[in-house]
Simulated assay, not measured.
Amino acid sequence: MSEDNILTASGWVRGRLIHEHGRVVSIEGVPCDPADNDLPYLLPGFIDLHVHGGGGKDIMEGASAFETISKTHVRFGTTSLLATTMTAPSAEISSVLKEVGEFCKRRPKGTARVLGVHLEGPYINPGKLGAQPNFAHTALMAEVEAYLALAPIRVITIAPEIAGHDALIRELSSRGIRMQIGHTLGSYEEGVAALAAGATSFTHLYNAMSPLHHREPGIVGAALAHAKYAELIPDLLHVHPGAIRVALRSIPCLYCVTDSTAAAGMPDGEYKLGSHTVTKCLGGVRLPDGTLAGSTLTMDQALRNLVKIGLPINEASQRLSQFPADYLGLNERGRLAPGAWADCVRLDRALTLTAVMVEGENIDFKNA
């Protein structure tokens, strides 16, 4: 087995990773500076907490789509992910959640691990839908309870300014569900109050939320001033590199997501996003009116984009692996250390992906 520059929980090591039964047993080697050699990089596998689709399939299509989506993203280094729903009628959401719940109990060969669900809507502001279909409504605890019985919902995006949502944030966050502020017209004050109530992050920071103005800081201002965590789409279309730098300086554990659609890993053309038809062209995905509608980003490209705008590889890796794992409270993922899951990616010196491992399984991603 060849040596790598391994990014461990305590820094770079030149050596070999030993694993058994899907877990890291040991990392044998010596501390190093990768600048002193030309060996490949071995990093923790990427964890994507906002995935709508990939490989031509959309999460809202149900069980027939899940394996294709998880196989598509594992080709780009995503070793675990959250299946992310769209705003839709309750019966449709329930049907999809039931099928996701069953899929989460297994991991088919050659796929990324589906950790659970990110419920992005329907508890959002109908005045800030972005690319979400117009089925937004106020959250009712009875409906949420029914959803929770169907699948492991890890994250819920919510607009905090809607009457009754503050109580829901308090209750669900007390149960360990990550409540994220997003698709919102809320004020700075409402964003700060939501954080105090237990909200923990912001959905695709800057996008589909009230912007920063020096006399009305908005939800963006609340995030920049107070958040520990927030997700951001680093495709360099959704957020300008300068705004990414602002967020990096302000939010200690800013983590990156793809917000990927069925168009991820596919050629230009038309694809489904929930009940919408979207078009992939010029590196993005848009509704007919030009609104950005998710992305075609993959996590390996996210890493390259972060490095391109000036982050060192170890910090870029943190924001794609460790911080999303920490956000969900998963101390056995997102890092390479004894006892952790053997989820890792190997990249050459040009940051081109050359190998992927999920829970100790070597993925034949080039022939997937």
Rank of each mutant, 00 (worst) to 15 (best):
G334C: 04
G290A: 13
E315P: 03
R335D: 01
A293D: 03
A337D: 05
Y271S: 00
F323C: 09
R304Q: 04
V257T: 13
T291A: 09
A230H: 08
C253P: 04
I233S: 00
C256T: 13
P288D: 14
L303I: 01
T298V: 08
Y229E: 08
L303N: 00
R319G: 06
G242V: 11
K280Q: 08
D235V: 03
C256P: 03
A230Y: 05
C281R: 15
K280M: 09
T277G: 02
L311W: 12
A325L: 10
V257A: 07
S275P: 00
C256N: 09
T296R: 03
H240A: 14
G334K: 02
L330D: 08
L328S: 09
M266F: 04
Y327R: 12
I309V: 10
A325W: 08
S260D: 04
A262I: 04
C281N: 13
L311H: 11
S250D: 07
L320P: 02
V246A: 14
D326Q: 15
H240M: 08
Y229P: 04
C253T: 10
R286S: 13
S317L: 07
Q322A: 13
C281A: 14
V257Q: 05
E270N: 09
A264S: 13
G265R: 05
S295H: 05
L273I: 00
